[in-house]
């Protein structure tokens, strides 16, 4: 079972709102390679894994991804808090706003709601762990793209942390995979 801790894994403190950036960063929450999908992927796959080492790795990384959902959500909240409909419209976030207002909703930047179709749980440890390795790299690329599109230092500091975690997870999944094949 789960226990919630009332703290972020990494601090988020954005000095000024930026709706345009929020419309891009939402992809890291509910996009095909976003944090919601990452968490659901690992926490779904772990049940049928053949060793404590792999089950533990998927449990702990899947759990950390829940904390990353919260970090990205905190970014979205702080980037949009207190903006007027005019400011939202000027930033091109009106299509999100008409449905969700200032609510945090897991969707891709292109507007598609989060879907589990972006991941699989195959019941095959080799297939699943290879998907997980690819997923971490794809998430890393999304964060690289966000860094290319953002010049906000407060945002980029948090994105760099999340990007680094993708690399660490990739390393651990590689070790988990090799623990089954070598």
């Amino acid at each position: 079972m789960w226990i919630y801790e009332k703290k972020l894994q990494y601090p988020v403190k954005i000095a000024k709102p930026d709706a345009r950036l929020a419309g891009i960063i939402v992809d890291a929450l509910g996009g095909p390679d976003g944090e919601v999908g990452a968490s659901m992927r690992y926490l779904s796959q772990r049940y049928t894994m053949p060793s404590g080492k792999v089950i533990g790795t998927l449990t702990d990384i899947g759990n950390e991804e829940l904390a990353h959902m919260e970090i990205v959500s905190a970014l979205l909240y702080q980037l949009t808090k207190g903006l007027s409909p005019e400011e939202i419209k000027a930033a091109g976030l009106d299509k999100y706003y008409v449905n969700h207002g200032s609510g945090i909703y897991p969707a891709a930047a292109s507007g598609e709601p989060y879907t589990c179709m972006a991941f699989n749980s195959k019941g095959d440890p080799i297939a699943d762990l290879n998907e997980d390795l690819a997923a971490e790299q794809k998430a890393r690329v999304t964060y690289d793209n966000i860094l290319r599109l953002s010049d906000n230092p407060d945002v980029n500091d948090v994105i760099k942390f999340l990007r680094q975690r993708e690399i660490v997870h990739y390393q651990r999944f590689g070790e988990a995979l090799r623990s089954l094949t070598d």
């Binding site: 079972m1 049940y47 404590g52 080492k53 089950i55 533990g56 449990t59 702990d60």
Partner: peptide, 20 residues
Amino acid sequence: LTPSAASTEGWNWIDGMWPW
């Protein structure tokens, strides 16, 4: 039951049965 309760002698977090 939680990782921080793991033994100081060895990482037994990944040992034993999982809840399911």
